[in-house]
Design a protein around this nucleic acid. Structure first.
Lengths: 136, 136
DNA sequence: GCTTACTCTATTAAATCGATAGGGTAATAA
DNA sequence: TTATTACCCTATCGATTTAATAGAGTAAGC
């Protein structure tokens, strides 16, 4: 299940991408437009800024803005920042790999075999979409 | 993230599918072979039985067994029973649809648009795999 | 009739999630 | 310089879910 954090983050990013210019947009404006708790959104935008997806400007006329063009932001990046691993089990994760504690042999594990396929197909979707593709 | 319930359930089903005959296998044997807490596995096998995937036999020589042939058990069915909705958000779920509380217009929702693609690609993987395909 | 093994209910500890509160700090305009 | 705006950070909290455990109950078979 997609977390609200990811959901809100995606909506906020899409909203920023839909802006005409790249002038800062206030948190309150984003929160209001997307029906999101402002305080919760604050923490989400903060992590997006820390990972280099967003820039921010303080003081009057400040707010958040996209650093790169929407078409140059692949959804793989966005999803990994917001939701974490794309894979459903750590043992098939590219960026967050971990060995299973149980499961003596990965190669002969039925779960591994299935989830590898799921990861690949999901990854393909995220690779084929940039933030620009999400703007209506 | 895949729950342990689903993971264990998949392993147990695969183990049962790998058996030569369809004679009942004891819970304890499955649990031991797959490194699963026996009590936890009990509850999982119980739900699999209630949804018609497994049969059980009580008393001496009893245990759980597959009712249908592995090749006739699509992974869509298994995953929905164990993990629930395949979609990452309820508003794109086929079997567990729910409208989002926020989000005034589904058609113009960026999250909806993206998650629809993810659901379709994941669904295709599960449709193309039966339990028989998971047996090593 | 006794053993075996499935069946069911209840409980629990831990983790995560979503949200809230409140203060702090930096940048900008006037 | 000063006031304001708006970002920044920490802490907390209730609710929910997850994974596991305990223990008693019940049906089938030898």
């Amino acid at each position: 299940m997609l977390s609200k954090k990811t959901k809100y983050g995606l909506k906020a990013l899409t909203f920023l991408a839909s802006q005409k210019g790249r002038t800062p947009v206030q948190i309150s404006e984003i929160a209001k437009h997307e029906n999101i708790s402002q305080k919760f959104l604050e923490s989400i935008l903060l992590t997006l800024r820390k990972t280099g997806l967003l820039g921010s400007k303080k003081g009057k006329g400040g707010g958040y803005y996209l650093i790169k063009e929407p078409k140059d932001i692949p959804m793989t990046t966005v999803m990994r920042v917001l939701e974490g691993p794309i894979a459903m089990v750590p043992c098939v994760s590219l960026n967050f790999y971990e060995k299973c504690e149980d499961c003596p042999d990965e190669a002969s594990c039925s779960v591994h075999k299935l989830m590898l396929q799921v990861r690949d197909s999901t990854l393909e979707v995220f690779r084929n979409n940039t933030l620009a593709d999400l703007v209506p």
